[in-house]
Amino acid sequence: MRLVPSPEQAGFAATLHDMLSAAGVPAVADSWADGDYAPGRRLWSRLADLGVTALAIPARRGGLEATPADLVIAAEELGHHAVPGPAAETLAAVPTLLAALGAATLDAGRLLPALAAGQALATLAAPPWLPFAADACAADLVLLADRDTVGPARIGAAHSSMDRTRRLYEVSPAGPMDSCPAVDRALDLGALVCSAQLLGAGRALLEASVEHARTRVQFGRPIGSFQAVQQRLADVAVGLEFARPLVHAAAVTLSTRDLSAAKVACSDAAGRAARAALQVHGAIGYTQEHGLGRWLTKVRVLSLSWGTPAEHRARVMAELTKEAGWN
C-alpha cells in the first residue's frame, strides 16, 4: 500500500499549486461570497483544463477514470488555496452517482462529459449527513439522495454558513427518485475529498502561522523564537503528518473504517491548525482584511460536513466491533 504520492502525483500537485497561486483565488472567493459566480466558474474551467474535474468520471463518459488517490491530490490543493465551490460534490459524489445510472437517467450521458469539461458544477443533499445542498444557486445540477435512491432536486430556502463562500439550501424532490446502488460509495468518496480539503487547509494555516512567527517581533525578538510558539506549531505539523497517510490509505482501501478514520484525523488536525493560527496571529487573525479567516471558517465548516467527527468515530467503532465479532 502506497501512503505517499508518486512522482507523477507530486508533479500534478505542483502544477495545481502553481496555477492556483497565480489565479488570484482570494479575489475569486470574495466575488463568490458576494454572489458573483463568474470568476469562480472561470477558475473551475481552468481546473478542468488540468483534468481535475474529470478525475472520477469514467473514460467512456469523457473522463480520466483516475484513482481515488488522484482525487486526494487534487482536493488537498483545492483546500490549500481555499477554492470556493462544491468541490466534493462536483469532483467525486455526483459523478459517482451519475456513472452508476443509465445514460438517459438524469441525462447522465450529457452531464458527465459537461462535468468533466468544467462546463457544469454539481451539488448534492443526502440527509442526514448532508441535510442541505451547498452552493446550489451556483450549480447546474442539484441532486437529492435518500438511502439507495437519487433524483433531481428543487432549491428551497437558503441558509448562511460560517464560510462566506458557502451557502446552504434546503431542497425537495423535483422528479422521480431512481434506484442507485452507488449512494453509499458516493458519500464515502465525498467524505474522502472533504478530508483531503481539510488537510490542505490545515497545511495553509500552518504555513501562514510559521511565516507570521518569523516576522512578528515582540519583546525585541521574532515570536517564532519563543519555545512555546515553536512547540505549538510543531504539534500542528505532527498532527497533519499523522493524518496524511490515513487519507492515502483510505483512498486505496475505500473501507468504511479507513474513510471515517481519515475524516476524524483530518478534522482534528485542521482544527488544531486553526486554533494555533489564531493564537499565533492574535487579534489580527480575526479581521476579514487579513484573509486568515478564509481557512479558519472553511476548516470549521468542512469538519462538520460529510459526517461530523462524532458520526465518523461511531462508524469506526461499529466497524471495529464487527471485526472483533462482538455483535
Rank of each mutant, 00 (worst) to 15 (best):
H248Q: 07
V217A: 03
Q227D: 14
S255L: 12
D258H: 08
E211H: 13
R244D: 15
R232F: 10
D268P: 01
R214V: 04
R214E: 06
F242T: 14
L259A: 03
S209E: 14
V210E: 14
L254S: 01
H248G: 01
E241C: 11
V238G: 07
R257L: 14
T253M: 02
A261W: 06
A251C: 05
V252L: 10
S225N: 07
A262P: 03
Q231E: 11
R232P: 04
T253N: 03
K263P: 01
G224D: 04
A262N: 02
I223Q: 07
V238K: 12
R216M: 01
Q231R: 08
Q230V: 03
R257E: 14
L233P: 01
D258R: 05
P222Y: 14
A250Y: 15
G220S: 10
Q230G: 04
P222V: 06
T215E: 08
R216P: 00
V247S: 12
F242A: 15
K263V: 03
A249V: 01
L254K: 01
Q231H: 10
P222L: 11
P222Q: 12
L259C: 00
F242S: 13
A213T: 01
Q218W: 11
V217K: 03
R272M: 13
G239Q: 07
G239K: 06
V236E: 09
D258T: 05
F219G: 09
G224N: 09
S267I: 12
Q230E: 09
V238M: 14
S255W: 12
A270V: 08
A250N: 09
F226A: 09
A243T: 01
